[in-house]
Design a protein around this nucleic acid. Structure first.
Lengths: 221, 221
DNA sequence: TGAATAGTGTCTTTAAGACACTATTCA
DNA sequence: TGAATAGTGTCTTAAAGACACTATTCA
């Protein structure tokens, strides 16, 4: 037996920050904990890595997300790894944190009770406040130079929808005309021919993403 | 006993990408492995987390770096976490990877044999090629909008030194005048009064960082 | 017609990049 | 003086931001 394998091993888990937009506000989907510690309290969805079942930590995150919302998130990315003696009362632990973007349209209404605006989140157990802070920071940062926020929208959306979601994720007002110019230059979306959203006003052209992958921009939006 | 704690636990380790500049080239410091697997081969310095000794994974990385170069790196940051069944023959493992910047002036000459330009790195064991690729990408990216490359320089340096190191880390030619204008606007460095580097030409003003922390810029360098 | 949202043209300000210039030392 | 590196001024181009304008629908 190798010497190193004799070392005591930390606990290894994943935690996920699931973003969605509800009523034009950036929200996180939380889960009520079924087991101790912190049984019954709201926390980020998470769980231990299952070495038999999961090929890697991202697989574990996908499994946790499927269990929580019933389908895969259109965008998933590793956020940061939190570790140490103190963060979990069960012992020295490593949590590989992920964040994901989930279009609200895909969530059935029963989930509404489990979403909370990020700006009014109460104190979460473990170091989940820290994870949330880092996830929001990453989302806001990537929103300024990539197509990331578009993954919060359903397949077809208007330029106004996109404008709103960029403002939500960046937490800033963006000039409508400049936003449209810049988005159209990036070639991340294309008009869906003949599809419009109608209302008591001029119909709005519907668009869709040109790629399922995240596209980074040369310049800021 | 809690149900979850009965799960088999993965191996937990840290690996470090230690950047330095040698002969105006971006290099990595590698270590020859003392134990199997891959005993005797060159790899990124790394090791298992010691739950008794290390407060968290970053502590473990610092310990590994001190063992390797004899002092703490002026800049250390978590890079990404690599995990899975396949990456290590000893079993399902999690490696929290870090990257650090080390001024060549601090390394004694005996280390020179262990540094390799990043662009000619041969195939490394485990998934270390992947770690290196990600570390280089992160370094290049942060070099375009932060004071990061300055951590590769000794305490006092000329504007030309800084210009060179930004070009090395970004892998691009930057206009000298524009670079100087932009750097001076960022307030990341200050002239050291009365200190100049002399040679067979006009003496160059020596500068130092105004802060030991990384400073992100509003715009690109 | 007016309210409501969709969508465009263009001007001003600011930053980025290129490039030519001056400065100071030593041999 | 000329080679070598240090350091600056300024012009051109391109991007960012502001804002006013036109367009199309329904009530």
């Amino acid at each position: 037996m190798l010497k190193e394998e004799g070392f005591p091993r930390p606990l290894v888990m994943v935690d996920t920050a699931l973003f969605t937009i509800l009523d034009e506000r950036l929200c996180l989907i939380l889960a009520r904990r079924k087991e101790p510690p912190f049984q019954g309290e709201l926390a980020l969805p998470g769980g231990f890595v299952h070495v038999q079942e999961d090929g890697d930590a991202e697989d574990a995150a996908r499994r946790v997300i499927r269990d929580k919302i019933g389908f895969d998130a259109p965008y998933l990315e590793q956020l940061y790894t939190f570790s140490g003696k103190q963060r979990d009362p069960r012992g020295w632990s490593v949590s590989v944190a992920y964040y994901a973007l989930v279009p609200a349209a895909l969530l059935d209404r029963s989930r509404a009770a489990e979403t909370f605006p990020v700006d009014i989140l109460s104190e979460l157990p473990f170091d989940h406040d820290q994870i949330v802070a880092k996830a929001v920071e990453r989302l806001r940062s990537k929103a300024t130079y990539s197509s990331l926020p578009a993954f919060l929208l359903p397949e077809e959306f208007t330029l106004n929808d996109l404008h709103c979601i960029y403002q939500q994720t960046q937490g800033a007002i963006l000039d409508k005309a400049s936003f449209r110019h810049k988005i159209m230059e990036q070639d991340i979306i294309e008009a869906v021919p003949g599809r419009f959203r109608t209302g008591a006003h001029r119909p709005a052209q519907l668009y869709r993403l040109t790629s399922r992958a995240l596209i980074p921009f040369e310049r800021r939006i």
